[in-house]
Nucleic acid binder design. Structure first.
Lengths: 200, 200, 200, 200
DNA sequence: CATGAATGAGACTTCATTCAT
DNA sequence: TATGAATGAAGTCTCATTCAT
């Protein structure tokens, strides 16, 4: 009694996902109980289980949905030659993909210990590993490896922590990307600089 | 029978800290129960409570101990002028400080969601924020801010994920630091490159 | 829209019963959830509720159907004189009746604790009690009672556990029945043996 | 407040076992919730978990304790020759062993469906299988096998259902055993009877 | 210095059942 | 005839913590 009956086609599944995402981001995966999600939505815990098999399943659905852009990017990258141009483009596209995927990676980042024993955690980590593999393709000396990692770190954590910096989102994204490309590019510049020294 | 009346120095407190650190790193703070720590040590949970007031207290002690080098570094940095040289030195010293402090920051990193509501989490984050503040001192345009963040990110995550790369620890550390300094240094190089363009 | 006004004979009710019987036998009544039955059948739980009022109702229908031969046997027995011949015939017919009824008694046997509080459990037990009453009719000393129980036990559990023995079903049934009749018959034989002793 | 503090050395573990046994027997294993056991004892559910790792563990402890006599019997039987005398003695001792072990086998009997997926169920069934193996040692024709099974069934279920018959426990036990021995013995008697027929 | 015993809160999950469509 | 959506009750279990000894 006194509870709004909530008529047909309520789109509850979507609402669960949205609420769960918000809470997982703001309070953490482990710290968010199904009771909280249910209460926030005005349904019972059992309703969640009607739509998702387990708690992990909710996160899984979120991972699949938000992670798609990165998956697509990896698929694309696998068909490109391992040139510097490709790597630059990979970074550019990664930066774009993170526009959507950021929240899910935020969750991965902040709940790594918990996700370590969840299969969805493996999936999420795999995506990052795969992308990093593309970027590192062709290996090279430790120095180059570190430089590539650094560039990726910049884009990745830049996207996750962007909100802490003041300014327009897109402008920040562009700047971060530019710096990352610069880092990636440094090998060439190093040589250029050396040349300048010689000239100098 | 024959029990030392005042068994000095059974060193249990230290053993608890050591075991807890290992488990917090490998399984996560939340996922490590006091039962596990106690069992691993062959004592009872109650024994832990004799030495530490709460679970968080164990982490706190660890944070104080392992975080000291960074605290010292911050204290030092506060007394230096905000020059580029200082910033370079800060990065150098940060890289060194992380030799010891890495595990505790690893824990912070992987359990952020949990530590968000623990006062020890605030302490740990504060240290990082303080250090970043020193590095960013004098502000500057967004671009410069990002560059500094990127350099710090490189040293910080380099230290935390170093184990995944092959090679000698110290060599890796040196390389990471070099790249980070390069990133920090790029403003100058940018100008240099521009000059070269003009010449070229 | 175009739905058959009175869709005759989709046979779903029967399919539910068949599937339920299989699962109740193999996994147990309590351990078999309506979800499982529904999934196995490719319908929804709600569909089960269209055909049966409750879970117990499904078992009830099964009990009525499979238990009929025993009911008939009891009805028959009630009209016979309480002679040894009748008792032998009762055992013979019980053995036959169990050809069909075995599964439902298997369920009773393995889920007694659960069925204790279900009215269908009472029904099932009553049938056994009634039959046993017929067999014991006329009472007699403890020894005779035990002998009769033993004979019935042999036929009953023989039928339920027959599958564990190797060999042809009907042959096994015949053997079990023969032994049971022997046990029933022992009173006479006892005397015979005593007579032999006297002679010997 | 108002709760008796229950001073030291309360023997709670034993009390839990006793209460659990009673409830498992009277309401069934599955149907008995830990809440019930706890409430009956005036402790919290968590207290049960201090003393036993899982619900199954409680049953396991009970099984180990009450099943010991049968275990001992099996050990004894394995060192005897497979003669008819041994088998008679096995039956006699089994009857005695069941004085203590009956409740646990009652539980096995009435909760078979549930215990099927519990390792303690396997243990309990194994004991019966082992004992039956001893009794059947030397195999023989189907008829003999059935006779042995029947004798064992008589003792086994006699012990479990004895309470339903009126009379003194020990007297009932003795009668049941006597009948069972008779069934076991029938092969000989059969021949005797045949001889009598010939004489007659 | 440490243990044994216990608690209260809360987590995830499953189930039989209902009802509007 | 059947489904999709939801519920309320209950279950097993784990955890950090306390306290008398």
């Amino acid at each position: 009694m006194g509870s709004t009956p909530q008529a047909r086609k309520s789109g509850t599944r979507e609402r669960i996902q949205k609420t769960a995402l918000d809470l997982f981001v703001s309070r953490g995966y482990e710290k968010t109980s199904l009771r909280e999600i249910a209460e926030e939505l005005g349904v019972t815990k059992a309703a969640l289980y009607y739509h998702f098999k387990t708690k992990e399943d909710i996160l899984s659905a979120l991972s699949d949905e938000l992670g798609r852009p990165v998956d697509d990017l990896i698929a694309w990258g696998r068909q490109q030659p391992a040139t510097m141009e490709t790597k630059q483009e990979l970074l550019r596209r990664y930066s774009e993909a993170l526009r959507d995927a950021a929240p899910i990676y935020h969750i991965l980042q902040e709940n790594q210990a918990t996700l370590r024993e969840l299969s969805v955690g493996a999936t999420l980590r795999q995506r990052i590993t795969d992308f990093a593999g593309l970027l590192h393709a062709g290996d090279g000396p430790l120095e180059t490896r570190v430089r590539y990692s650094s560039a990726m770190l910049t884009v990745h954590f830049g996207a996750l922590t962007m909100d802490m910096l003041p300014g327009d989102r897109e402008e920040k994204r562009a700047t971060i990307l530019r710096i990352a490309l610069e880092i990636l590019d440094s090998t060439t510049r190093e040589e250029t600089a050396a040349a300048l020294d010689a000239v100098g």
